[in-house]
Amino acid sequence: MSALGLQQDVWWGRSLQLSWRVSVLCAILFALGWFAYQGLADSYDFQWDKALRFAPRYHSGLLMTLQVSAVAAVGATVFGLLIALGRLSPWVLVRDLAGLYVHTIRNLPFIVVMLVFFFGLRKGVGLDSVTVFGHTFEAPFVWGSITLTLYEASYMAEIIRAGIQSVRSEQMEAARSMGMTYLQAMRYVILPQAITVIIPPSTGIFIGMVKESALLSIIGLPELTRTAVDLFAPVRRPYTFEFYLILAGYYLMICVPLSFLSQWLEGRLGTHSRIGEEAARGI
């Protein structure tokens, strides 16, 4: 048997194993699901045909969710970097302040921060909608982005800080010894090396942001959850279960690929961060 032949046999063997495993799993799930469904359907009149007709209308909400998450992702990274540098600053008091920010925000539910900002600060600051280059952003989007950015920045800050600290201090010494300023050393030597450590947990944070954005429905942002909820309100109650399940399906559609990406990245770049885990929960 040639070497090539052996390889092919191994490949066939493995994929056969995999397909067997997947099919048994599917069978079990199907059985479970069928039983559960029958049980539920006794007391609940499922009307999937009517509910699924509404599915395409979810798409504008989906877009909004992605938009707000993208904005928050960029903002949180920038702001998080600043806070991380603050946490690592040689001035103790700057460290304390940055630490205070991180520890306070992380211990508050996102919804509470959102409520304080949107229903409290907004009235006080008077910032409603923002018009940039002729495009108007409504208050929920503006405040939603701001809140999500500031909230997730605290998680990003910890991840970036861990990443920076993972680069050995001798690298900073070598860079400074050649005359580089702190910022030059950060930019050319430390941060490029820190990025490998920072990226895997950051995907977790992005997943968390997508999930967190569901709460922005409360302040009226027309993202995925709000769109779904608004859709069946005029239609009639009986569809809630189907609608919510479809809604969950949409989130799974976005987040599951992202979490596979995250796992793949962790494998390639090799880190597993608890902070990333926490942030990926999206409270």
């Binding site: 001798e170 010494e173 070598a174 050319y188 030597v189 090396q193």
Partner: peptide
Amino acid sequence: VFQQFNLFPH
């Protein structure tokens, strides 16, 4: 020049 060389690995 350092004991651990400290070249920039990236």
